[in-house]
Amino acid sequence: MEDSELILTEDLEKTYQDGVEVRAVRGIDLLIERGEFTAIVGPSGSGKTTFLNLISGLDTPTAGRVLLGGREIGNMSGTELSDFRRDHIGFIFQAYNLIPVLTATENIEYVMILQGIDRKKRRERVMELLDLVGLADKADTRPTMLSGGQKQRVAVARAMAARPSIILADEPTANLDSVTSGELLDMMHQLNRETGMTFIFSTHDTLVMQRAERLLTLRDGKITADETGSEKSIPGIDGKKKDEE
């Protein structure tokens, strides 16, 4: 695996046995390089979230393997995997999912506490991130007092706190209006360019697809299209691309 290669999946499979057998991911081979701004698209049930869970170590594959920065995550123990996620992966969720009993500052610094970073350095980093997402004045505000857009900005700051190499965002704009979504995506794209962090989105949002530099289309657990730059064809609201109609 070369230095530029961040995520490599080989014949990745995930099958659920919930009464009936569901093959959520079927033999995906994929390489994602450092610094990519990639969106995974596809209709509901196509396996996007399962794929994100597998490449982040949140779930274990039924077959195949995932290499993250050269390390096979399937061989890690529970604690090793936790530490790996803590240090290398940032998550942004659809419903923001900030911890409601913690303030914006505390939500952002949580992962740094897990890393054992001292309070002074943590607070400096938190202020830096809050500045970056434009919420320096909301440092001591609890999530319930923030708007949806503000919560997602805090979530972005939280995902970046540990300086991870990858940020995985599962439908990050699903609960936001188009203006707020646009602003948030601009911000993340800027962060991607400035810091070199890899962003991988799972999305139905055309705004995300438009801004993504690479578009992976998943259908029935398989990657059916892998497009970059001007080649990209944005699916419609039914999840189908023009050439599929």
Partner: peptide, 16 residues
């Protein structure tokens, strides 16, 4: 449950 999932995703160890 979801909140615990978020904590786990962030790297909270099982013992923690």
């Amino acid at each position: 449950t979801f909140e615990f999932g978020v904590l786990l995703a962030q790297g909270t160890r099982p013992l923690q």
